[in-house]
Every structure is written in C-alpha cells, then in structure tokens.
Design a protein around this nucleic acid. Sequence first.
DNA 1: AAACATTATCGTAATATTGCAATATTATAA
DNA 2: TTATAATATTGCAATATTACGATAATGTTT
Lengths: 115, 115
Amino acid sequence: MQYYNEDMGTTKTEHFTERQSEIAVITKAMGHPARVAIIDLLLKVNACIGNDILEKIPLAQPTISQHLKVLKDANLIKGTIEGNTVCYCINESTFELLSKYFGNIASNVIHQDCC
Amino acid sequence: MQYYNEDMGTTKTEHFTERQSEIAVITKAMGHPARVAIIDLLLKVNACIGNDILEKIPLAQPTISQHLKVLKDANLIKGTIEGNTVCYCINESTFELLSKYFGNIASNVIHQDCC
DNA sequence: AAACATTATCGTAATATTGCAATATTATAA
DNA sequence: TTATAATATTGCAATATTACGATAATGTTT
C-alpha cells in the first residue's frame, strides 16, 4: 500500500523565491515553438496584428488564442481591443527583464577546472 | 461522434523553424522555479557541486536529479563525473545565446500607437 | 435587424510534467 | 570484500499542457 502526496503532479512553488517563480513563469510561457513563432512574427511585422497570426501559424484558431493568452498572462505581449479585432504587440519591458537576467548569468560565470 | 487528431496533447514541432524549436526547448527547461533555483545556486557558489544541491533545495533526491537532467539536456548546465560525485556547472554559451536572443527582441521593438 | 468577421471560451482526448518511494548503479572507504 | 555515499533509474499517481471542434460573445457591415 502506497501513500502519495497531495501535490503530486503540481509544482512546489512555495519553496522558492518570488524572483525565481517570476523567471520560471515567464520562461515557461516562452517554452513552446508556436509561442516563439508568435513573438518572432510580432517583431518582424512591427505592427499590431490580430487574426493575421492565423494565416502565418498552422494551428487552429482556438489553439492560437490559447497561446496568445499564455503569452499575455506572462506579460510577454500586450493586447488591446480595437473594434472587433485585437491588437497584439510585444511588451518590451519583459524582454528587457529576460535580457538582463540571462546577460547577468552569462557574464558572471566563473570557469571551474572540472567543467 | 467526435474525431480527434492523433497528436492531441503533443506539441506540433514540425511547423516551426529549428531556431524557434531551439529557443523553445531551452526556455521550457528554464520554466520551473526549482530549475531557476538550481541555476541561481550554481551561479552563487561559483563552483561545481553535486549533492550539495539537495541541502539547498527542498525537494527529494530523485526529483532534483530529474530537474538536473532537464537542465543538462537543454545544455543549460554541464555535468562531469568526478569519482562518485558529479560536477555540475553553468554552461555559459547557452546563457549567452538567450541573452542575445532576448536582448535583440528588446532593442528591436518599435512602439505602435495601439499598445 | 440580419449576416458576417474576429476572437474567446468550453469540453474533451491525448500526451507531458511533476514529485517521490523504491531500487539500481557506481565509486570510495573501511 | 563488505559497507557506505552519491547519483540515476523505474514505476506510478496526480496534475498540467496541448490541440481542436463546437459554440459563445462582440463588434462591424449590409
């Protein structure tokens, strides 16, 4: 007879710092090729686009809508309703946060003998 | 009667570029607070550590071992066997890649009226 | 008002992830 | 050689994620 923990399958966030959870939430949101493709597209067209994404990314409309929600919840993109379309664009500040976080790590690694 | 696709639940990687998949794999690996905490720890101690991680992160040994594997598979860390311990340390080049990727996005966003 | 266009939500199926006990593996120490 | 120590693997339960059809919601057009 085995006893299993109540939070089997869930992430144990309570043990980590706010900062660590913040970075994890944002990077997790980037962690899907469709979402990376959406970001690339938003950067490329340099414009606020709505349903155009549908033509460029070969996934069904509800799936893309879901991915957009993940990106928006992580503050990676902003979305503004414009009539019956939605204007989506990149949220620069979150990318700056990521750039600084990763840049800081890259420039602070001290090389050890073993690696 | 509903018909469901064979790849229900799986990520449709074939539609995206190698670059997009690469970024997604790496960021996905960062997308867990325990793994962010492991990276923070490796940076802080500036040394190659093995089982010390167990004392600092409140998760069971198999769970940590699994997280380390995820980080290693994404080339975020390197692991070298040293006797009966393993030397884990940060893989600088992957963090440079991320730093550049996000830095490039942050510095190339052109602000639109709508957002 | 009715039709149309755009986006979001719901429901559901399939797979993936998380976490840990138990156990295996491998190297060092006694 | 037999512990002991450190790490990996296996197996499994619980939850999360992904994808999409159907449908709802909302604004625009005719």
